[in-house]
Design a protein around this nucleic acid. Structure first.
Length: 587
RNA sequence: GGGGUCGUAGUUCAGUCGGAUAGAACGCCGGCCUGUCACGCCGGAGGUCGCGAGUUCGAGUCUCGUCGGCCCCGCCA
């Protein structure tokens, strides 16, 4: 076998005169009868190879048999292209390789879809032939950027004293949180391992063990329904630190994120990152994952419109609700149909309606104008700072409904107005989440973050009086409205953990059965500790501008959790099931 | 569990009011062509209209069911 001298995509004018041996895929062949051009492609790019029978009759004959995606090897000399035939679209476009000898290393079936930067092929087809899809430059670039990010993370955390430790993939099912993937145990019939939703308990135990600072780039598994940014298995950058409070975690994590953005995008993120409390975020943006690349804040109009006869507003206010609005700058020309579309959109989130007011040079107009006095219309305009050309959109309902409806509407409008600058990266910490939320369905308190999150010290007495007002020492990192990470300072005292389980309705016995090992560990000298986990896939999505998480994962699954290439999941034969003592009960 | 949308040649799509032999482009195969790079020109092959029922003289087209892709709600500590 020949040994290649380098990559196709690397050849430049400086290589002219050198003899090279190249190997790669036939990207395209242009047969002129007496002269054949072959673009040979490898991971670094492509280069034009010229087959002239006068230079190599046998090589020419081989080139005649070449077809797209054949794997070929050529030996030849790098030459400047004749003047006027350079191709500025190619990095290698100044030069070409004059083939003297050629070999076909392997033939290829006609590709199911052409291997091009932008493919028109449906994702269904691309996923079934993922290895062909992965030949396309855009996916190659995404995965190589992902590789770069792995290296930056390891280098940064190593430099800062973190120790990389693997935790079990076959572990224990725990209550709360997402549905577990289960793995039957052959050696313990009727017992099951669970795949970890995160290494949460293990990393805390590593703190108990005295490793001080730990990290892991680790797969996590959650058996929930998929979305454009959710896969059943995904990767976290999992981090935990001992003897720290929040200020020991956040600034260092900002350095890590900044280093990633610098290395991957050449973007400098100013530090410190801005911070918002959960309450501020909720009030201004309606969501706990605010996109701060643009303004359009939610504004409270409850006091302005109090006393109005307009039923939807009056009813909402009487039943403890609020009236809030946003100013869609320059949207006064939105048609009735546009407004209807936006209304339908927010109805998905529980809002009953959307009340529009157009600001014109003559004043404020609205289909609902007859319910409002001119003074009130002017007051609404004033509070929302409406100028002629603006469209004011109001929603009235219970606070959470108003927040989500307007928060999502704000994003929808920003998208329509082109306010989401893809070159802008706005990180923001959201802090002071509530520790608990009341689950109406289950009729009990549940943890907003997870049951090991520490409450803010001064709020601990509220456990007995008003659990809903306890703040958590938890924090999320949001970039451009995407939650890319979240963490907390953990409970390290046995009695606080007990209080937490108590309020969650997890009995002494159940707690011992489910988390006994953690509770016990807390009794053996647990340092104060806390940490964070970043969603690596989502981070790579932001860095690459990918619209789907599938574009940053080599072998992703469909919305039904299937791998169209390997056909997983699949039935297994009876012997396997018998060995596991499993009987199927299918509909 | 629910809502929306899509499924026709290898690929991307068109296909009228239900009507005769289901079309186009790209790709593929063959021929010609010595400076192309989305090469060009000539010719050709290629179809389980996702699958299954039903309505009809007749279904790619209408109805019902079903399978699958994508987006969303619920879900995702």
């Amino acid at each position: 076998m020949w040994r290649r001298t380098g990559y196709c995509g690397e050849l430049r004018a400086s290589h002219v005169g050198q003899e090279v041996i190249l190997m790669g895929w036939v990207h395209r062949r242009r047969d002129h009868g007496g002269l054949i051009f072959v673009d040979l492609r490898d991971r670094e790019g492509q280069v034009q190879v010229v087959f002239n029978p006068e230079r190599g009759q046998e090589a020419y004959e081989v080139a005649r048999r070449m077809r797209p995606e054949y794997v070929g090897a050529i030996r030849g000399r790098v030459a400047m292209r004749p003047p006027g035939t350079e191709n500025p679209a190619l990095d290698t476009g100044q030069v070409e390789v004059l083939a003297e000898e050629a070999r076909i290393l392997n033939e290829a079936r006609t590709p199911v879809f052409p291997i091009e930067e932008e493919t028109a092929a449906a994702e269904e087809v691309r996923l079934a032939y993922r290895y062909l899809d992965l030949r396309r430059p855009s996916l190659q670039q995404n995965l190589r950027l992902r590789h770069r990010v792995y290296q930056v993370i390891r280098s940064f955390l190593d430099r800062n004293g973190f120790i990389e430790i693997e935790t079990p993939v076959l572990t224990k099912s725990t209550p709360e949180g997402a549905r577990d993937f289960l793995v039957p145990s052959r050696l313990s019939p009727g017992h099951f391992y669970a795949l970890p939703q995160s290494p949460q308990l293990f990393k805390q135990l590593l703190m108990v063990a005295g490793f001080d600072s730990y990290f892991q780039i680790v797969k996590c598994y959650r058996d929930e329904d998929l979305r454009a940014d959710r896969q059943p298995e995904f990767t976290q950058i999992d981090i935990e630190m001992s003897f720290v409070d929040r200020e020991g975690v956040l600034p260092l994590m900002e350095e890590l994120i900044a280093e990633i953005f610098q290395a991957a995008k050449g973007v400098k993120l100013p530090r410190p990152f801005p911070r918002l409390t959960f309450t501020e975020s909720f009030d201004r943006y309606g969501l706990d994952n605010p996109d701060t690349r643009f303004e359009m804040d939610l504004t409270d109009l409850s006091e302005v419109v109090r006393g109005t006869e307009f039923r939807p507003f009056a009813d909402a206010l009487e039943s403890g609700g609020v009236v809030k609005g946003i100013n869609a700058h320059g949207c006064s020309d939105y048609s009735r149909k546009d407004i209807e579309e936006l209304t339908d959109y927010i109805k998905v989130f529980g809002a009953k309606g959307l009340v529009p007011f157009r600001v014109t040079p003559e004043g404020v107009s609205s289909p609902m104008a007859k319910f409002f006095s001119p003074v009130l219309l002017e007051a609404i305009r004033g509070v929302l700072q409406g100028s002629p050309g603006d469209l004011l959109l109001l929603v009235a309902d219970q606070p959470p409904v108003v927040a989500e409806a307007l928060g999502r509407l704000r994003l929808k409008l920003a998208e329509r107005l082109g306010l989401l600058d893809p070159h802008k990266f706005n990180p923001v910490w959201v802090t002071d989440f509530p520790l608990l939320e009341f689950d109406e369905k289950e009729g009990r308190w549940s943890a907003v973050h997870h049951p090991f999150t520490a409450p803010v010290g001064e709020d601990v007495p509220l456990f007995d009086t008003d659990p809903g007002r306890i703040r958590a020492q938890a924090y999320d990192l949001i970039i451009n409205g995407q939650e890319v990470g979240g963490g907390s300072i953990r409970i390290h005292r046995r009695e606080v953990q007990a209080k937490m389980f108590q309020v969650l309705g997890i009995g002494e016995e159940e707690a011992r059965a489910k988390f006994g090992f953690l509770l016990e560990a807390l009794e053996f000298g647990t340092p104060p500790h806390g940490g964070i986990a970043f969603g690596l896939d989502r981070l790579i999505m932001i860095l690459t501008g990918a619209e789907s998480i599938r574009d940053v994962i080599a072998f992703p699954k469909t919305q039904k959790g299937q791998c169209l290439m390997s056909k997983a999941p699949s039935p297994v034969d009876g012997a396997q099931l018998k060995e596991l003592r499993i009987k199927l009960d299918l509909p």
